[in-house]
Amino acid sequence: MDSAPTFNVLIQDCPSREIMQRLGDKWTPLVMLTLADGPLRFSGLRQQIGAVTPKVLTSTLRTLERDGLVDRQVTAQVPIRVDYELTDLGRSLLEPMDAIRIWAEKHADKVLTAREVFDEK
């Protein structure tokens, strides 16, 4: 009887570690949360996220597509229309990502105060 491989993010070469790092990068959570309400075009993503360069957003979207979290739909029209949306696997991340978002928003004032206290030392 074959068993599923065991992954452990605390093991340096474990693929789950790379995945966890990618999910925690600067832009991935913002892209995922922005796509939570449904498909968007590239320009819509940039507008909602703000401050992300086209190059970085393109790279982030390609990585998420490669990992099976985002689907890229091309519609043949003039000009070509490209929409991005979360896959089922990507949607399965929304609950934990939203929990982190809620925590960050709820505790931002405490974190900012802690930074100020630390920096005054």
Rank of each mutant, 00 (worst) to 15 (best):
M1Q: 05
M1P: 07
V9R: 12
V9M: 11
I11N: 02
Q12L: 03
C14H: 15
C14T: 10
S16Q: 04
E18F: 01
R22T: 14
R22W: 02
L23C: 08
L23D: 04
D25N: 14
W27V: 13
P29I: 06
L30R: 12
T34D: 04
T34Q: 00
A36Q: 10
D37M: 09
D37S: 15
G38D: 04
L40M: 15
L40R: 15
F42V: 08
F42D: 07
F42M: 11
F42R: 06
S43W: 05
G44Q: 15
R46N: 11
Q47T: 11
Q47Y: 11
I49G: 04
G50W: 08
A51G: 13
V52S: 01
T53L: 13
P54V: 07
K55L: 13
K55N: 11
L57F: 10
T58V: 12
S59D: 15
S59C: 11
S59E: 14
L61E: 08
R62G: 10
R62T: 13
T63P: 02
T63D: 10
E65T: 09
G68E: 08
G68H: 10
G68Y: 07
L69M: 12
L69R: 02
R72L: 00
Q73C: 03
T75Q: 12
A76L: 14
A76Y: 09
Q77N: 13
Q77W: 03
V78P: 00
I80A: 10
I80E: 15
D83W: 06
Y84M: 06
L86C: 01
T87Y: 11
D88E: 13
P96L: 08
M97A: 04
M97Q: 00
A99H: 02
A99V: 00
I100S: 03
I100N: 02
I102K: 06
A104L: 07
A104P: 00
A104N: 13
A104I: 08
H107F: 08
A108I: 06
D109K: 07
K110L: 09
V111H: 01
T113W: 01
T113F: 02
A114I: 01
A114S: 06
R115V: 13
E116N: 00
D119T: 11
E120K: 14
